[in-house]
Amino acid sequence: MAQESGKAAHPTEDSIAARMAEAGIAAPADCTPGVLSNLIVLQDHVATLRAFALDPRSASAMRFEA
């Protein structure tokens, strides 16, 4: 079933294993739970970012000075 638009599906251990393989990383299965919990935290951060609707033209993503 399609996800609600803009809302990311939570990763699973299986999806983590598949994505790491696609990324060319051969990490033992022991790593998967730790990667999963970290990715879920990052997804929460991403959700916080996405909830703030910043027009992509309102600021540059490539400016590196304060």
Binding site: A23, V35, V46, R63
Partner: peptide
Amino acid sequence: PPVRDRMLAGLLLPADDYLAAQRFRSWIQ
């Protein structure tokens, strides 16, 4: 292990999310 797991998770982030974070950085500065 804690560093490895955080970095492996970072490798799986879409580029769009990274760019959105950088865009927010410019905006808030």
